[in-house]
Structure formats: structure tokens, C-alpha cells
């Protein structure tokens, strides 16, 4: 079983990487690699899902409890959202960057948490709450939406003829709404577990900072001179802060989110 888990993770990583290359070549050259890139992304997504599924069966709970499981979900939703976008908007340009981001996210597993692949710890008492599941799911969906929005924003800055402002706005609103839900649901959980719905711990505070960046983006959007490039820079800055909230806070700042 251990071998299967590892094999699955590394093949998914490889598939995302190859999909990134196919999207890159397909978007650049005349060779029509784009259908193959889409197919590869679907297979990788299937493998990604399989890892999540095996984890769920093996642990008997939803895979929403540690960094490794977050990365699996984060990548899964990012790619899923991108594939929907590709079909809905009929645009493959963002494929390269989304697959690249997915590859890098997956790469964090062997780099930062290799032993988690086959280790399923017990759930500590504070984490045993139905609020936790909805809190984490909404946070991950939000982060995935911000990843996709940042990808599109990046392309718009690089290539002025690529205009998907309306999609960026709608994807950011989706991320913003789910992040808002996530923060409130997390506060409800904290109130039940610790008796305080807000305690300014680093993770909480950085989630708030992320939320503020996108709130500023949404408000500035009504000013003509804050649309286009400047708005796109905000969307990218927002995603960098998302990544810091996701990885940086865990590894660089110490949190209070533990029991006793």
C-alpha cells in the first residue's frame, strides 16, 4: 500500500509537469498538443482524486486535517476550476501557468512533508468538530480560486491583448465569498473549541490580511484607473499572500492553534 501511495503521488506530479509542458508548447506552436494537454490534466486530476480517496478510506475521515491533505485538495480544486474555465471560456492560455503552479504545489509534498504520504495520525480533540470540515473546504476552494485568478492576471499583464478582466473579477468574487465563509466558520469553531472566536493568531491574522487585499481589489475596481494592470497586480499580490498564509505561517511563525 505504501508503494502504491508513493507511486500515485509521483506519477501525478509527473503528469501535471508534462501537462504544463504540453500546454506551453500547444499555446506557442502550431503543433496541436492542446487536446493532449487537456487529456493529461484530466488523468492527473483523476490520480489526484485517487490519492484523496485512498486517504479518506484509510483514515475513515475526510482528508482535511494536515498540510499534506491540504496540498492534495488545494491542487485538486485548482485544476478542476481551471478545466471548467477552459471549457466555459474556451481559453487554453492559462493552462501552462495553472499546471505549473499545480506541479509546484505537488512538489511541496516530497520536499516538505514526504513522511506524511503514508502516515495517518490521530485527530486531536480540538480538531474533532463538524465546523472544521466546512471551514477547511471553503478555505481550500477560496485559495484555488485565487490561484486561477492570479494565473489569468499574470497573463493579462504579460500580454495586453489577452483580456479576461471579467473572468478575473468573477473568480476573485468566488474566492472572496468562500474565504469570507471560511473565516466566519473558523471563528465559530474557535468559539466552540477555545471560547474565543478571534485571537489574532498568525494563521487567522494572515487569512484576514488575504481577505483585506481582495476586499481592497473589489472596492478599487469601480475606479477606472484601478482596472487593468494595477488591479491584476493586486490579484497576484493576493495570491502570494495566500501562499504565505498556507506555507509560510506554518513553517516560519508559530501558531497558537493547539490544545493546551
Amino acid at each position: 500500500m505504501d508503494i502504491i501511495n508513493e507511486l500515485l503521488i509521483y506519477s501525478t506530479l509527473g503528469l501535471y509537469a508534462i501537462a504544463a509542458i504540453f500546454y506551453y508548447l500547444g499555446n506557442k506552436n502550431k503543433i496541436n498538443l492542446l487536446p493532449a494537454a487537456f487529456g493529461l490534466a484530466i488523468v492527473a486530476l483523476g490520480f489526484n482524486f485517487l490519492s484523496l480517496f485512498i486517504r479518506t478510506v484509510a483514515s475513515g475521515r475526510l482528508p482535511l486535517h494536515n498540510g499534506y491533505e491540504f496540498v492534495l485538495c488545494f491542487t485538486f480544486f485548482t485544476v478542476l476550476m481551471y478545466l471548467f474555465y477552459e471549457k466555459y471560456a474556451g481559453d487554453t492560455k492559462a493552462g501552462t501557468i495553472v499546471m505549473l503552479v499545480s506541479t509546484l504545489l505537488y512538489l511541496s509534498i516530497p520536499l516538505l512533508m514526504p513522511y506524511h504520504i503514508n502516515y495517518i495520525g490521530n485527530v486531536m480533540p480540538a480538531l474533532k468538530s463538524p465546523w472544521l470540515a466546512v471551514h477547511v473546504i471553503t478555505a481550500i476552494v477560496a485559495y484555488s480560486a485565487f490561484a486561477l485568478a492570479a494565473g489569468l492576471a499574470f497573463l493579462q499583464i504579460k500580454n495586453k491583448t489577452f483580456t479576461k478582466d471579467n473572468y478575473v473579477y468573477r473568480i476573485v468574487i468566488t474566492g472572496f465569498a468562500t474565504l469570507s465563509l471560511s473565516i466566519v466558520l473558523g471563528a465559530i469553531w474557535a468559539e466552540q473549541a477555545w471560547g474565543r472566536y478571534w485571537s489574532w493568531d498568525p494563521k487567522e491574522t494572515w487569512a484576514l490580511v488575504t481577505w483585506i487585499v481582495y476586499a481592497i481589489y473589489l472596492h478599487l475596481n469601480r475606479y477606472k484607473n484601478w482596472q487593468g494592470s494595477r488591479a491584476n497586480i493586486l490579484v497576484i499580490v493576493g495570491f502570494i499572500i495566500v501562499l504565505f498564509t498556507f506555507f509560510g505561517v506554518n513553517y516560519l511563525l508559530s501558531g497558537l492553534h493547539s490544545y493546551a
Binding site: W200, T205, W206, L208, I212, V213, I216, L253
Partner: peptide, 11 residues
């Protein structure tokens, strides 16, 4: 903006 910046520094 100010609250966001200061919170980030505060952590």
C-alpha cells in the same frame, strides 16, 4: 490597507 499592513507586521 493600513490595518492589513499593520496586522501583517504585528504577527
Amino acid at each position: 490597507m493600513i490595518i492589513g499592513l499593520i496586522s501583517a507586521i504585528g504577527t
